[in-house]
């Protein structure tokens, strides 16, 4: 790793007061415009957003967060209750259809009709059917994602090569 690359890692340590500059590092920094530019960026980054963040009052935020959690829990309970209500209603309708009052409906829908197979699927072999099922099982967009490897897919050596090109 070049001296500039090594110093780049050290900058974060010094910036966040976890370490101090060594004498040799100060000398390098003084004579290297590229490293000085990086240090200037990092110093600006350290203070970035501080003015906006200072307007957030954690003392007031705590109770608001707790109220938000309670409200979200109430909403979840209400949704669950609504869902269970819907399920109960669906069960009631099903029972009604299967009860003596629902017989008329059953008579108009002979069982044989329900069992008529889909002609398109009937003509397929077992292998073709399995192929179709595999397509349903594959996650959406999986083919596109696998075609485009990200940095996370690269090995250490490949990442090192990329870094070397960045560091010049």
């Amino acid at each position: 790793m070049s001296e500039c690359g090594r110093l780049s890692d050290r900058m974060i340590e010094v910036l966040h007061l976890r370490s101090n500059w060594a004498a040799g590092e100060v000398t390098h920094l003084a004579g290297c415009p590229d490293c000085r530019a990086e240090w200037r960026v990092l110093e600006a980054a350290r203070g970035l957003g501080a003015a906006v963040a200072n307007r957030v009052d954690p003392e007031r935020l705590g109770p608001r967060v707790l109220a938000g959690v309670a409200a979200a829990r109430r909403r979840a309970r209400w949704l669950r209750a609504g869902w269970l209500g819907g399920l109960a209603a669906a069960a009631a309708v099903t029972l009604l259809l299967w009860s003596p009052w629902g017989n008329r409906t059953r008579r108009t829908t002979p069982e044989r009709e329900l069992l008529v197979p889909l002609a398109e699927l009937e003509g397929l072999t077992t292998q073709q059917l399995e192929g179709l099922l595999d397509q349903f099982a594959a996650p959406l967009g999986s083919a596109a994602a696998s075609d485009a490897p990200g940095l996370g897919d690269l090995g250490d050596e490949e990442l090192e090569q990329v870094l070397n090109t960045l560091e010049g």
């Binding site: 970035l48 957003g49 501080a50 906006v52 963040a53 200072n54 957030v56 954690p58 003392e59 935020l61 705590g62 967060v65």
Partner: peptide
């Protein structure tokens, strides 16, 4: 919340 709010706010800002 008191401990971490400022850091999260700075990150978001």
């Amino acid at each position: 919340v008191t401990r971490h709010a400022n850091a999260i706010a700075r990150f978001l800002a």
